[in-house]
Design a protein around this nucleic acid. Structure first.
Lengths: 323, 323
DNA sequence: TTGAAAGCGCTAACAG
DNA sequence: CTGTTAGCGCTTTCAA
């Protein structure tokens, strides 16, 4: 029976039929746990993301799940809530399931979590980091599926500078552990200075991101920030919050203030004017990570890294740069 | 060792220490699959949602995941993409893992899927349906964690009628399998007629929900719909799309047109005027479902149903009803 | 309190 | 092509 279930061609048609019949008569269901125990090969892929309520990682999960459809592998999901402690705890819980591959978000984690991942890799489990493709050389056997947030930060700064803004501002995420947003901000500031602009970085409050955007707008009205007219944001919701507040206040956009968001959330395209933003490969990251994981499992080799594309989507909150 | 791991008090302190030491020396990790096989008790909870990229179910997953933290149970997630065939396929794949509980969305599914769930329930696996608390009597042993979409539809109609609108319109979701949106629409129409209003139901196009809302606005300008001034929507994005299009067109809201959305998405609160909407217990559904599942597993009994609260959040797109 | 052993449902390897 | 068997790592039971 086991033989038939895994390679139906290796039994004679006659027995195959007998088995089929018996299966449907008894309502037999295969027990994957036992199979895994016996074979030593797991059919679970564990993934850990910081959050799923905010649009950004949700689509990655969707991509992951879709790419795993019919592969015979199931997705074991953990949500860390941007807490490194919870990430480590979940990671430890996951290893007890002997997942066939482990997918984690980004590359900043506790020392303990790193140790767990190292142990996994030494044991031959493919480990994939998503949403980042950091400049630091990935350690042996660690795949990165994502893009360079530094490059995004640079592109934001260049886009604003191209339009003649002399003083730039980056409104960073208030979530301490949103390392990717911070990285974009650092690169933004560095590039701004390289281009001869002044640049400040502020941290938005946490909580409702639209309100955080409004708060940044109020900050912008204070003397220290009044002259900063080229604005970049950790995410589109922040940018939309500021956009709406500025419009209510009668500010002309993009003439007085230019905005660049991040994430390409649906809402941004429909405000007036439309929000210029960075479109990250939200879903592709999940899909490619799943594919890379499956391929690594099949090849019994470390997973391959993939650098994915992102786009600067220019809309009304910034003008097209003179080329 | 096994004894120590599951009930540390039942071994002497001396041996406990010896075991501890050995564990940390060898880097032992317990294999849950083997444990499950031997004990017959699974530590996996399987959940199936239609989508996770759209805000609505994402927070439910977050609630689920958080409530499962530290419980010793892990979440196995499947995304059906609103496809009943995929739901059935995933369900069949899940049962092979012998999950300790199964959580599915809504109560509409293929006959095959129903059969699988029935089999599970007969085998003593708690089955929970989330996001619905349908009027039909839940079958024995099937718990429902959610709220009545019919009640929501009614409340939407009453709210609009209370403000003097004579002709109501429900813009339904274009997603054929979004049964909950359809149910709200049916109840909306029924209540509208009961209140002596004329009512039409239209189906929004699929794709970008903001654009779908704009399309509904264009439809509203045609003779057949021109007099329909009390508008309800399958979701907030649709409503926001219409709101933005109507404002661009110079329509006065709520004087000319009143809007009620569904979902209480962040964006709605920050448009001008703010979107009146229904706030469903997105995250609570996940949390309560997880708690009910864990409790049922512990009690070796069917899970308990829970009717959760939702709120009508009145903002600027409709006036406060005269009370 | 501890040791020993059977067996969960499957896979893989080997013999027929 | 098919039957048989050891054993995956754990839990559980029984005996010491």
């Amino acid at each position: 029976v086991s033989r038939f279930l895994r390679e139906p061609d290796r039994v004679s048609p006659a027995t195959a039929e007998r088995i089929q019949e018996a299966i449907s008569e008894t309502g037999y269901v295969r027990n994957h746990q036992a199979g895994q125990l016996a074979s030593g090969y797991s059919r679970v892929i564990a993934a850990l993301v910081p959050s799923v309520g905010t649009a950004i990682f949700a689509e990655t999960i969707e991509g992951l799940s879709q790419a795993l459809q019919g592969s015979g592998f199931e997705l074991m999901l953990g949500v860390t809530g941007y807490s490194m402690e919870r990430e480590e705890a979940q990671l430890r819980a996951f290893v007890g399931w002997a997942p066939a591959a482990v997918i984690v978000t980004g590359s900043h984690r506790t020392a303990g979590a790193h140790k767990v991942l190292d142990g996994l890799r030494e044991g031959g489990t493919p480990v994939l980091e998503i949403w980042d493709s950091g400049t630091r050389r990935a350690r042996e056997g660690l795949a990165r599926i994502g893009f360079s947030h530094a490059a995004v930060g640079k592109a934001m700064a260049r886009h604003l500078a191209d339009q003649g803004h002399q003083r730039l501002l980056y409104a960073d995420s208030g979530v301490l552990e949103d390392f990717r947003a911070h990285e974009r901000g650092q690169a933004f500031a560095a590039e701004a200075e390289r281009l001869g602009c002044r640049c400040k970085v502020v941290t938005a409050p946490t909580g409702d991101p639209f309100e955080a955007g409004e708060a940044v707008y109020r900050l912008l009205s204070t003397p220290a920030y009044r002259l900063h007219t080229g604005l970049a944001f950790a995410n589109d919701h922040l940018a939309c919050g500021l956009l709406l507040a500025a419009r209510r206040d009668g500010r002309r956009i993009p003439q007085e203030l230019s905005l660049v968001g991040f994430g390409n959330f649906p809402v941004g395209a429909h405000l007036e004017p439309g929000l210029t933003t960075i479109d990250p490969p939200r879903q592709a990251i999940g899909r490619v990570a799943a594919e890379a994981a499956l391929q690594a499992i099949a090849a019994r080799a470390p997973a391959q890294s993939h650098a994915l594309d992102w786009q600067l989507v220019v809309r009304g909150t910034s003008r097209v740069p003179r080329s």
